[in-house]
Each structure stands twice: as C-alpha cells, then as structure tokens.
C-alpha cells in the first residue's frame, strides 16, 4: 500500500472575495517529488503555506508526515523543511553562522549543531565559502544555503516554493542536483514552479492548479498523453514551402496540421509514430523540399497546460519564453 507524505482534502482559503483555494485535493506518495504547477494567483503559494503550518485553512483537512497541520502543527514542524520564494538566509551572518543558528533553533546541542553544520556545508558545496558573509554569495549559493537550512533535521517533507526563480541556468542545475540528492535519501518534496521544464525534470507527479483547484494530477507522461500522443514537427528552410509540407504531413496525421509561419514549422499529432516519420521523410525528400528539422516528440507540458487551462503557464501569452519551457512570471 502506498503511504502518503502529504494528504490534503478539500482545502479552502479565502481572502476577501478571492478564493485562493477552492477545494484543494492532493496526495503525494512518500519519497517522491510532486510539482505544483499553475499560473500566478492559482493558489500554489497558499497551498504551500497551509501545508507548512504558516497559514490556517478556512476549511478542509491536511496531514503532512502523518500529522494534522491544524491540530498538531508542532509535530509537523519537526518533520518539514521550507524554502520559500525569498531566501531567508541572513546576509550579515556567514554561511556557517546561519546554519548553526538554525541548527540551534532546531534544538540540536552545541556540539551536534556544529557537526551538522560542517556536514551540510560540505554536502551543499559551500565549505569553501563557509566563513564568508552571505551578502558576498551568488544567487545559487544563497539558494543552496537556504536548502541546507531547511535540511538540518533531514525533513520527511520538504516544501520548495519556486526554488529556482531568478537563477541563472548553472545555479538552477546546482539546485536541482541538491533536490535530487535529498529525494534519494527518502525525503518527499512538494515543489511549486513556473518553469515547466523544471517540473518535467524533477517531478514524479505533477498537479496542475488553476483558480484554487487541482485540475489535473498524474505523472508527467500521463499528463502529456492526456492531450494526445506523439507529435511530428517539420521545420522547412523556406516558409513558402509550408503549404506543401503541410499537405505531406496531413496524410500521416491524426488531425489537421498546425502551421507556425514565424518558425517555418508544421506540427501535427500522429497515431503511428514510426510509420509517420518514415513516410514523411521519404515524401519530403521526393518533393524536393529543404528541411531544417524533422522530429518526433511528446507534447510539452506547456501544451498540456494550455489545453487544460486555455492559457499558457505564464497566463499572459508569453509565447517565445513558453516554447523554451521557461515561463517567467
């Protein structure tokens, strides 16, 4: 039987006339990563704040690491870590002083706090900068220190609210590595993100949140298959060839092909991927079209998101960024 580290049923939270959460249900199995995805204002942060005992729900119930977040917050707090949208590390203190302070607040004795601090600094690759003040740290180092702080007691459940927002690609990779390491040790992670590729890479389970409710929930591949199977993409060198390319693809496609003139690309869903790519490749060559790219792929999470909510993850039609899977708020 699957054991759940996070179980939420019918969580509701209202601010004035706004329903931040309107019946939020979620179950996350122990030792897995769940990505909470949704446009701004969908209720992601509210959900994390309720589950991490920072905020009381107006209704519904939630258990985290086996304890009720409303009835037994102290027990929950011993078993969770939280890294919020802002890094809560202290700029004036050094990395070592930061960790030691948090360790003492988790009631580790002085010797144990020192041992754990050294261990975490080493493990998060911060040993070299341990005695520098945090204001001299890079963004990625701060996030890692913040993660280290939320990992002092090796939490059963770790909440990460947009852990890589505003980080450069290298720092994002560093944070991802740290998260994967934590999961390998048995921690359950609930991660909110606006970056679809982040959820795609890290999460075993993705819950799509819209207007305070989970509107889709499942593995990334299941979500992708919800809006259909494989897609074929053809990019031609000359946009004038687009109609001919579309005619060729239409013969193998499951639905009428979509043409994106700016990218000189034709896209269509296909039923039999192998047949589709073989036939398309042959016919494109026979027709003498100059082809830049011919690929077979599953839909991106952004396309899933678009089809589920009727708008992109950025909620403001931020297409170019969305196509790269990096939607900024």
């Amino acid at each position: 039987m699957t054991r759940f580290a996070i179980e939420a049923e019918g969580l509701r939270k209202r601010y004035g006339d706004t329903h931040a959460l309107a019946g939020f249900d979620l179950a996350v199995a122990e030792g897995t990563v769940c990505g909470l995805l949704g446009p701004n204002g969908a209720g992601k942060t509210t959900a994390v704040r309720i589950l991490s005992t920072l905020l009381l729900p107006d209704g519904g119930t939630a258990r985290v690491a086996g304890f009720d977040v409303v009835g037994d917050p102290a027990q929950v707090r011993y078993r969770i870590g939280l890294a919020g949208q802002q890094t809560s590390v202290d700029e004036i203190l050094t990395g070592r002083e930061n960790l030691r302070m948090w360790a003492r607040l988790f009631r580790l004795g002085p010797r144990e706090a020192k041992r754990r601090t050294d261990e975490l600094l080493e493990w998060f690759g911060l040993a070299g900068a341990a005695d520098k003040r945090v204001k001299h740290y890079s963004g990625g180092m701060r996030r890692r220190l913040d993660l280290a702080a939320s990992f002092i007691l090796a939490p059963r459940v770790l909440f990460l609210d947009e852990p890589t927002t505003g980080l450069d690609p290298r720092s994002r990779t560093e944070v991802w590595r740290a998260v994967r390491d934590l999961v390998a040790q048995g921690t359950t992670v609930l991660l909110t993100t606006q970056y679809l590729d982040e959820a795609d890479r890290l999460a075993h389970q993705i819950a799509v949140l819209d207007a305070g409710m989970v509107i889709a929930d499942g593995s990334p591949s299941r979500l992708k298959s919800m809006i259909g199977g494989d897609q074929i993409d053809v990019v031609v060198r000359d946009a004038a060839d687009l109609p001919s390319a579309a005619r060729i693809i239409a013969r193998v496609a499951d639905a009428s092909p979509e043409i994106d003139p700016d990218a000189a690309r034709v896209t269509a869903p296909v039923k039999d991927p192998l047949e589709a790519i073989t036939v398309t490749a042959r016919e494109l060559r026979d027709a003498g079209l100059q082809v830049e790219d011919l690929t077979l792929r599953r839909p991106t999470l952004d396309e899933v998101f678009l089809s589920l909510t009727g708008r992109g993850a950025g909620a403001d039609g931020d297409r170019p960024a969305a196509e790269k899977g990096m939607v900024r708020p």
């Binding site: 005992t53 102290a74 707090r77 919020g84 802002q86 809560s88 202290d90 948090w102 009631r107």
Partner: peptide, 14 residues
C-alpha cells in the same frame, strides 16, 4: 517578515 526570515521561524518548532 518581508524577507521570509519570520516564515522560516514559524515553519520551525521554535
């Protein structure tokens, strides 16, 4: 409170 320090305290058994 604005920098999230208070939130971290509050999410801990402090």
């Amino acid at each position: 409170a604005a920098r999230g320090v208070t939130d971290r305290f509050r999410s801990m058994p402090v």
